[in-house]
């Protein structure tokens, strides 16, 4: 855990090997619900990152203080506090995005990715690794949401970050910004992700045998 390589691994595993969306398939509610535009995906990713990062910081700092019988309650109190803060900050600073994300901000409290990382990692590790883990997982989640959001907005609205891409002759695929579009896109990206991961596994087993 002390070598730079180990630290790097803790950070990187959230991006690829244990990506919360494409590998662990956690936090599906925001993943499917608010990814109809790239900007919404980005905002949800950033909000989740913020909550995950600061919850991990506190949980790791207090890991010796928090008695294990009340740890879930304490984690939820910590997470809910940061979610409420994010909710207030978004409403104060970017009211339009806050309006778009609606109830899904409050639902970050029950995003199993966040509670999962506290229980599986932050509660057992020192602050440094806990923050690296949170940053990796948060980035991995944001990246996955953004990928889904970009595909859905391009096909469903013909634009990217609200800038028209395809011109006026393009007929938007409305289904892509509706709930089914979320499932289609997620399924498709999971397919690609798994195909790539499988190829890499095969390639690495071939190299290790030779």
């Amino acid at each position: 855990m002390n070598t730079p390589d180990a630290h790097w691994d803790v950070f990187l595993k959230g991006l690829w090997k244990e990506n919360p969306v494409f590998v662990a398939v956690l936090g599906m509610c925001p993943t499917l619900a608010v990814t109809n535009t790239a900007i919404n995906s980005l905002a949800m990713g950033a909000a989740t990152f913020f909550v995950l990062f600061f919850s991990s910081l506190l949980v790791s700092l207090l890991r010796k203080v928090i008695a294990k019988q009340v740890r879930i309650t304490t984690y939820i109190v910590i997470i809910a506090t940061f979610v409420s803060l994010v909710d207030m900050l978004l409403a104060a600073l970017v009211p339009d995005i806050h309006k778009e994300l609606g109830a899904f901000i409050a639902l970050i409290v029950v995003n199993c990715l966040i509670l999962g990382r506290q229980e599986a990692f932050a509660a057992k590790n020192r602050v440094g690794p806990a923050l690296l883990d949170a940053a990796g997982m948060g980035l991995g989640f944001s990246m996955a949401l953004l990928m889904i959001g970009v595909v859905r907005e391009l096909l469903g609205s013909g634009s990217l970050f609200n800038i028209p891409v395809f011109g006026s002759s393009f007929e938007p695929w409305i289904v892509m910004i509706l709930p089914p579009g979320g499932f289609f896109t997620l399924g498709f990206l999971l397919l690609i992700f798994n195909a790539v991961a499988q190829r890499r596994a095969v390639a690495s087993s071939v190299t290790s045998q030779s």
Partner: peptide, 8 residues
Amino acid sequence: LVATLGLA
């Protein structure tokens, strides 16, 4: 336990 939750 009460103290932990109270502090949180």
